[in-house]
């Protein structure tokens, strides 16, 4: 499979604050990749770098093989971009914005735009500036579908949306991506939405990429283990196998990719006799990998 996005050794600072050091990743054609991370870990920054709207201190990203700072018009036509907050030209009406964008894209699918907007209680003459956040999100999504890009880059698509609009957005997006073999690179704060949508997951921590794995692999192998403290002096430190151990009273929990037998073996050496294994949602896994604080 060809690589639609390829980033190599991206290092970036805001002032003296390190955002990433030597961040490298790639996204294959047809994959839906979700970028997760706490606030301030640089999710929007990487989207800005990808689209050439931020020059990193070093490193390079390529979209369809072209360097991010010099994307040709043809490559830009293959990339659909959703900015954080569903930002669009709010001085247009629903029909005017469709007319504006249609002039730029030869394969423009007007019907895809209006089909999606049928679900909304809006008139073609309604101005975007008078719409709710949810309605604007559907307009933005409709414009992306009409553009019919090969790669969709969506920055925090769930921001400001109520559960109904979020679900609508996710369902349309999932159908679109799977039916037409599109590549999607997205970020969101609402991780339960991502679970329904993404194939691969990249989790950012402050200054580094924590993990880049298929979601299935994380869901199948990453577990939470609970146990009771064997004695007052018991202490469990985090290491490469045990992620974010924490205690509430004498009840402990720890996250791990290790199978239960191995976790049992390790904890047995510390005096723990009984452990409980729990399957995780993606949100739980995210907390397990990044910590609560």
């Amino acid at each position: 499979m060809s690589k639609i996005i390829k980033c190599e050794n991206i290092t970036h600072y805001y002032g003296n604050r390190l955002i990433y050091e030597n961040l490298s990743f790639d996204v294959e054609q047809g994959k839906v990749l979700g970028l997760l991370g706490k606030n301030g870990t640089g999710k929007t920054t990487i989207i800005n770098i990808l689209n050439g709207y931020l020059k990193p201190r070093s490193g390079v990203c390529r979209l369809f093989g072209e360097e991010m700072e010099h994307l040709s018009p043809f490559t830009k036509s293959k990339v659909g971009l959703l900015l954080e907050g569903h930002v669009q030209h709010a001085y247009f009406t629903v029909s005017q914005i469709e007319k504006f964008y249609s002039a730029f894209f030869p394969k423009w699918k007007k019907e895809a735009y209006y089909e999606l907007l049928k679900k909304l209680q809006v008139l073609p003459s309604q101005k975007l500036s008078t719409m709710s956040c949810g309605q604007r999100s559907q307009v933005a999504l409709g414009l992306l579908f009409a553009q019919d890009p090969e790669l969709l880059i969506l920055d925090d698509f769930s921001m400001g949306l109520d559960p109904g609009y979020r679900r609508l957005f996710v369902e349309y997006l999932r159908e679109y991506a799977s039916a037409e073999n599109k590549t999607v690179f997205l970020t969101s704060h609402i991780i339960q939405d991502m679970e329904l949508l993404i194939d691969d997951c990249m989790i950012m921590d402050y200054g580094r990429l924590l993990l880049h794995k298929p979601v299935k692999e994380i869901m199948h192998h990453f577990k939470r283990y609970r146990f009771t403290r064997p004695g007052d002096t018991f202490k469990l430190e985090a290491d490469e196998d045990f992620w974010h151990p924490s205690a509430l009273g004498d009840k402990w929990e720890v996250y791990s990719f290790l199978p239960k037998a191995e976790v049992e073996q390790r904890l047995k050496e510390m005096g723990v006799t009984e452990i409980t294994e729990e399957n995780l949602s993606l949100e739980d896994a995210f907390i397990g990998l990044t910590g609560k604080y």
């Binding site: 709207y53 018009p73 990339v79 971009l81 900015l83 907050g85 669009q88």
Partner: peptide, 18 residues
């Protein structure tokens, strides 16, 4: 000013043209 509000200029510069 509308182009710079919410950095909409990004959308304009992302249009398929130089």
């Amino acid at each position: 000013v509308p182009e710079m509000t919410q950095k909409r200029l990004k959308l304009t510069l992302h249009l398929p043209a130089g």
